[in-house]
Design a protein around this nucleic acid. Structure first.
Length: 413
RNA sequence: CGGGAUGUAGUGUAACGGCUAACAUUCCCGCUUUGGGAGCGGGCGACUCCGGGUUCGAAUCCCGGCAUCCCGACCA
């Protein structure tokens, strides 16, 4: 798209009420807008990033058999009463409202109850299993304190997948496949080398659950890591008895700050029993379905990428996440030849289906370069009188700062 | 929810209880400039968060509310 038509603009200074690096950079570059504490809107650049992240998540979830649905945000109190999770004393993050017609309504903070009821409408036989459903949708949580920019908000996008299995073995198999898919996702997001599948306490049905923790100074969580052994555990399972199961000792672990970018856990039959989600097995007996729940926050992941990969000049997006692949910057655009060439190149690139942001603004080079660094598109292409005279095109790598000259033909191929 | 702090043009900052609320930036106009947020001139933009109070006089002091941030608690 042409940058002259992009309605957002960059700013030199971040609002004083933003302290976190992710929000400061994302606001300065025009990716997001803060509505109020813990509530952010996504602007054109930001939405493109979120969509890219969601695409990665979808591809990986589909690859392990996930079926995408889209569940409503508005929640039926009666449904939640069956699991005793409507009660404010049990769940303290509810946003609730009254219906004009009478009665109450809730805003979804998770979807176990809803998906279980939906699936129960269709699932009868062992032949229907296993089944994996997921959706990407807004969650609402009435947090006591929002903080850390887009990392901990009251309204946020979440991908949650729910698995339905016949046996523990079947459940375990998918659980592990999903964990592997999660690591592929974080690798593609560019934060894989800092992200650990972390042991956490399990709950009623399994001894352990897992969090995906990305080591970062901005993190709110604490994990204990052994990078060589590729093992991380959270505080809940720091007992020696647990640690010996993982093959580490306490003094081999280093305490580090981290961001929880995902989590997976076994639900056992808690929801299936509460909501009557049973299937008939080969012997004709009715059995409760074994469930699992698997979450990733796309917006929190976006914030984590910014926290980890930005530098003093601005954001540095990984290839797959970036809002555009190429930032085409023309300088000296009052020269008709430069303008015409840049226009033409823009046309060729977009025709070739390359996502390109074209800085066609009537601005000086310094301002354009500063903005380009701040916005953080991986590859910058510079067109100027100089490049025109050389017959080559200047290409700058945002991450490394490396500059090379390429021919138009090589660029387009 | 406990503790602390802060609310002034879009943004960042200033202003002793006292003149028309100042400066920078953004934005608009003109000239100049043109490879790292250029320069000069002119201009637009503020019920100083809201409501009370004290005072001859309040951005400034007091009370209440609201909002935002930080620390803690909390956080499937």
């Amino acid at each position: 798209m042409r940058q002259s038509q992009l309605f957002t603009k960059t700013r030199k200074e971040a609002p004083k009420d933003e302290v976190s690096k992710n929000a400061q950079l994302l606001i300065r570059a025009g990716y997001i807008h803060k509505e109020m504490a813990g509530v952010y809107s996504y602007l054109p650049l930001g939405l493109r990033v979120i969509n890219n992240i969601n695409t990665i998540i979808r591809e990986e979830m589909n690859a392990i058999g996930g079926q995408e649905v889209f569940m409503s945000a508005l929640q039926d109190p009666e449904l939640w009463k069956t699991t005793d999770r409507w009660n404010d004393d049990v769940v303290d993050v509810w946003f609730k409202s009254k219906l004009k017609a009478g009665g109450e309504i809730g805003f979804a903070w998770t979807h176990e109850e809803m998906i279980t009821r939906i699936v129960s409408q269709y699932l009868r036989s062992y032949k229907d299993l296993p089944l994996f459903t997921y959706h990407i949708q807004n969650k609402f949580r009435n947090e006591m304190r929002a903080k850390s920019g887009i990392m901990r908000t009251r309204e946020f996008l979440m991908k949650d997948l729910y698995s339905f299995s016949r046996t523990e073995e079947e459940h375990e198999k998918f659980y592990n496949e999903c964990a592997e898919a999660y690591m592929r996702i974080f690798n593609r997001l560019g934060i894989g080398d800092k992200t650990y599948k972390t042991f956490a306490s399990g709950g009623a049905f399994t001894k352990f659950s897992h969090e995906f923790q990305t080591l970062a100074d901005a993190g709110e969580d604490i994990v204990y890591v052994n990078e060589e052994k590729n093992i991380a555990v959270n505080e809940e399972v720091l007992e020696e008895a647990d640690l010996s199961e993982f093959g580490v000792t306490r003094d081999e672990l280093e305490k580090q700050k981290s961001i929880e970018v995902g989590n997976i856990f076994s639900l056992g039959t808690k929801f299936s029993e509460a909501l009557g989600l049973n299937y008939v097995n080969e012997e004709g007996e009715e059995k409760p379905v074994i469930m699992g729940s698997y979450g990733i926050g796309p917006a929190r992941s976006m914030g984590t990428v910014v926290e980890l990969l930005s530098d003093e000049k601005g954001i540095v997006w990984p290839e797959e996440v970036a809002p555009f692949k190429i930032h085409l910057v023309e300088i000296g655009g009052d020269d008709e030849k430069v303008r015409a060439y840049a226009d033409d190149l823009y046309k060729k690139l977009t025709t070739a289906n390359t996502e390109v942001l074209y800085d066609d603004r009537d601005a000086r080079a310094g301002e354009k370069f500063a903005d380009s660094d701040l916005i953080g598109i991986p590859t910058r292409i510079v067109i100027s009188k100089k490049t025109l005279e050389s017959g080559m095109i200047e290409r700058v790598n945002r991450k490394t700062g490396m500059v090379d000259m390429v021919s138009e033909k090589d660029l387009l191929s």
